[in-house]
Design a protein around this nucleic acid. Structure first.
Length: 226
DNA sequence: CTATGATCATGA
DNA sequence: TCATGATCATAG
């Protein structure tokens, strides 16, 4: 008990955007209260809290399945934390590196491309000077990569995957990739997963994932506000 | 462990 | 100041 009725998934893109519209100008604290969710003092031990809150508020239904947040609509939701200057404050996590047969995947079939094929970006105030509960939700927008953007992402992805195949994914640096990068993604650095070694064999490594650099999401934000 | 959601924290 | 590498919570 104590659980409120979950918000049902939006039945159309239009309904999803209407829900987003109603969140514009509201604070995280007020939305959380309405959903019966406690707002933590900070995100130190609740790093995914904002994203989970918005998913619930909008009726996302994928849970922790490897599916788009709004399964029926094929739309992935990402919160976009903004600093005091209104610019993306952090990189955006996309997905983990495929555990097997990395070298045989093509961009067309890649998890990164599927994840980023249709994204609902929800800008959120994220300046640490603003108490979490008082941060405002901005105007969300739907994004599909332009040809230029997709080409750039594909370029990065192919280069990174080549590095995985040639040198193994254990020692890939986050410095590689113009817009897309590979960084650790785990509970801690002692977590091990099956990865691909330089010789192409399986080896235990720290799990890593793909992230979009803030320079990329900054462009999306600017393009959107034009 | 792997997936979901990300931000933290320190070195350069 | 900011990007890289590390880390936190939770479900299944």
């Amino acid at each position: 008990m104590g659980q409120r009725q979950a918000i049902l998934p939006p039945q159309s893109q239009q309904e999803l955007m209407t829900r987003c519209q109603r969140l514009v100008g509201r604070t995280l604290g007020s939305v959380a209260a309405e959903l019966g969710i406690t707002t933590p003092d900070n995100l130190l031990k609740h790093k995914g809290w904002v994203g989970s809150l918005l998913e619930k508020a909008l009726g996302a239904n994928a849970g922790n399945l490897a599916e788009p947040d709004f399964m029926d609509l094929g739309i992935e939701m990402k919160t976009l934390p903004l600093n005091g200057q209104g610019q993306p404050k952090e990189s955006t996590y996309v997905c983990t590196i495929a555990m097997q047969q990395s070298g045989e995947l093509t961009w067309q079939d890649s998890w990164v491309r599927r994840k980023l094929s249709h994204v609902l970006w929800v800008p959120i105030e994220a300046d640490n000077n603003i108490p979490l509960a008082e941060r405002y939700i901005g105007q969300a927008w739907l994004w599909k990569p332009s040809n230029v953007q997709e080409t750039a992402l594909q370029h990065d992805w192919e280069e990174l995957m080549d590095r995985v195949v040639l040198g193994g994914q254990a020692d890939i640096s986050a410095k590689e990739g113009e817009y897309l990068q590979i960084r650790p993604k785990a509970a801690n650095s002692r977590v091990l997963a099956t990865g691909v070694s330089a010789s192409g064999e399986a080896e235990y490594i720290n799990p890593k994932g793909f992230y979009l650099r803030p320079t990329f999401t900054k462009q999306l934000l600017e393009q959107q506000s034009q």
